[in-house]
Simulated scan of single mutants.
Amino acid sequence: MLASSRRRLALSAAALLIGLGVAGCSSTSDRMRSALHAVTPYKVEVVQGNVITKEQVELLRAGMSRQQVRELLGTPLLADIFHANRWDYVFTIKRQRVDPQQRRLTVFFNGDTLDRFEGDAMPSEEEFVAGLDTRKLSGKVPVLEATEEQLKKHAPAADTASQNAGRTLAPLPPTYPPLESR
């Protein structure tokens, strides 16, 4: 009987502490929510398809063979057997803190030769590479030149160089001791 009353008392005390904890958390819950929103889990970068640049599209010409188009743009992401005269080049990239990007270029063939192509405006190679860098740039370029004082501080001493030039090194021993003792 005594053990069961102690157990009830312990359970009541635990329930009371939990209730007080929940009541006390209501004032700090807004701060906790904002702290949790500041911490985001890592999301995997997803890159799919072919990167097609403006320079590559400018090299496309009607009359090119399928092999020439493949060498220029790569293997298409979508080559449908039901639309044998159409290749779709699709590029998507999803990254943290960056809006997802999607570009499409469709190439149409007449037999084995390129007939026409249509699609989104493609970025130049330079624009594409610049768009990959998501770091916030400070705008400050660090100084990449050393001052005369810095050069003098790290310059080898002239006396040491002249001393070493006149000195000869000791001859090497004719044999070396064994690596392991017998």
Rank of each mutant, 00 (worst) to 15 (best):
M1W: 11
L2K: 04
A3M: 12
S4M: 07
R6F: 07
R6I: 04
L9Q: 12
A10F: 07
L11T: 12
L11S: 10
A13M: 11
A15P: 03
L17K: 03
I18W: 01
G19C: 15
G19L: 15
G21F: 06
C25H: 03
S26E: 15
S27C: 10
T28G: 10
S29D: 12
D30V: 12
M32Q: 08
S34Q: 11
H37F: 13
A38F: 10
V39C: 07
V39D: 10
V44I: 07
V46L: 14
V46D: 11
V46I: 15
V46K: 12
V46G: 04
Q48F: 12
N50H: 00
I52Y: 06
I52D: 01
I52Q: 02
Q56E: 11
E58Q: 15
L59N: 04
L60G: 05
G63D: 03
G63S: 04
M64T: 02
M64E: 02
M64L: 00
R66K: 10
R66M: 05
V69K: 08
T75K: 14
T75L: 15
P76V: 07
L77G: 06
L77Q: 12
I81P: 09
Y89M: 02
V90D: 14
V90A: 08
F91S: 11
I93D: 04
K94Y: 06
R97N: 14
R97I: 05
V98A: 15
D99L: 08
R103M: 08
D112K: 09
R116Q: 10
R116F: 09
D120T: 05
A121Y: 02
M122C: 09
S124H: 03
E125K: 03
E126T: 05
E126A: 07
E126C: 01
E126N: 05
F128I: 06
A130C: 01
D133T: 03
V143C: 14
E145A: 14
E149L: 15
K152Y: 00
A155W: 06
P156T: 06
D159I: 00
S162Y: 06
A165V: 09
G166K: 09
R167V: 12
A170M: 06
A170W: 01
L172G: 08
P173Q: 06
P174W: 00
P174A: 07
T175H: 15
T175V: 12
P177D: 02
E180T: 11
E180Q: 13
R182C: 00
